[in-house]
C-alpha cells in the first residue's frame, strides 16, 4: 500500500491537547517534518516552554527538556555549549519569550548561540486563559485589558524578530504564518533553513510564527485566521527580517 500522507516520524502517536484551530499543532508538525527530513531526530534535543506548548516534549519523538517559564534559551545554551555538534531548539510562546524570558532570549541571541528558536506569537497568554502579552495588538481585547490594549497604559506591542535582528549574533530571523498552504510551505522552508544554518554553525536562528489562539481570542478558527491575516500581519510584517548567514563564516 502506498502512503499519500502520514504522521511524521518526528511526532509520537499521542493525541494533542491543543484546541481546535490552534496553530501549535501545525507548527509542531512542520518542525517534526523538518527534523525527519534532515535526519536529525536521533540527535536533536528540544526545550519546551511554560505555556500551551509545555507538553511539546510528550508529542515530539526526540529527546526533550522542560524549562522554567522563559528560561528555555538559557537551558538551550547549557545544552548546545556542551553538545556543539547536535541540533538544539527551543519552542516558545510570546508570554514565555517576550515577557518573562525577554532577558534570556536577548542574551542567547547576543552570544550567537547556535540553536534555533521557534517563536509562537499568538498575541496572548493562551495557557493561563487569555491575559495580555507584550505582543497583544493595540485595541485587541484580553482578560487583563478588557477594553482592548491601549498604548498609553501598556505600551506598543513588541516586534521580537526585528529586535533580535539588531544583534550581530542573530544571523537569521524570519516571520511566517501557517494560515494557508502557501504560507505553511514558506514556514516549513524557513524552519528548515534555520536548522541548516544551525548545523553549519552560522549562529542564532529565529523563526517567528504568527499564530492564532481561537479559544482566547473568542473567534472561530476561520475568523481567527482572517484576523491574523488582516490585523496581525499588518503590524508584524511577514517575511525575512534578517538573513546574514550566507556571509557568516
Amino acid at each position: 500500500m502506498a502512503y499519500i500522507y502520514k504522521r511524521s516520524e518526528g511526532l509520537r502517536d499521542i493525541p494533542m491537547h491543543y484546541c481546535p484551530g490552534c496553530h501549535h499543532g501545525i507548527v509542531h508538525k512542520l518542525v517534526a517534518e523538518v527534523l525527519e527530513e534532515m535526519d536529525l531526530l536521533d540527535e536533536v534535543i528540544g526545550v519546551c516552554p511554560v505555556g500551551c506548548a509545555v507538553f511539546a516534549g510528550d508529542y515530539f519523538n526526540c529527546d526533550f527538556q522542560e524549562a522554567a517559564h522563559g528560561r528555555a534559551p538559557a537551558v538551550a545554551t547549557g545544552i548546545k555549549r556542551t553538545h556543539p555538534n547536535q541540533p538544539v531548539f527551543t519552542y516558545q510562546g510570546d508570554g514565555d519569550l517576550a515577557s518573562i524570558g525577554a532577558g534570556e532570549i536577548v542574551h542567547a541571541a547576543m552570544r550567537g548561540e547556535k540553536f534555533t528558536t521557534v517563536f509562537i506569537n499568538n498575541g496572548i497568554y493562551g495557557m493561563t486563559g487569555g491575559q495580555m502579552a507584550p505582543t497583544t495588538l493595540i485595541g485587541m481585547k484580553a482578560s487583563t485589558c478588557q477594553d482592548g490594549r491601549s498604548a498609553e497604559q501598556a505600551g506598543m506591542p513588541m516586534r521580537m524578530s526585528e529586535m533580535l535582528a539588531t544583534l550581530d549574533g542573530c544571523v537569521y530571523a524570519e516571520r511566517v504564518c501557517v494560515i494557508d498552504i502557501p504560507n505553511l510551505n514558506k514556514a516549513k522552508r524557513a524552519i528548515k533553513k534555520a536548522f541548516e544554518y544551525q548545523m553549519a554553525g552560522k549562529g542564532f536562528t529565529f523563526i517567528e510564527v504568527l499564530s492564532t489562539c481561537p479559544t482566547n481570542w473568542g473567534m472561530t478558527p476561520l475568523k481567527a485566521n482572517q484576523f491574523l491575516k488582516e490585523k496581525m500581519a499588518a503590524y508584524y510584517q511577514l517575511g525575512v527580517v534578517k538573513d546574514t548567514a550566507q556571509e557568516v563564516k
Binding site: A74, T77, R81
Partner: peptide, 20 residues
C-alpha cells in the same frame, strides 16, 4: 565556561547541561 547574563540564566544553563 560561559559567563551568563544573570544568575537566573546561569542556573538554567546548569539545568540544560545537567539534564544531558
Amino acid at each position: 565556561f560561559v559567563q551568563a547574563e544573570s544568575e537566573v540564566a546561569a542556573i538554567n544553563m546548569v539545568y540544560g547541561a545537567a539534564a544531558c
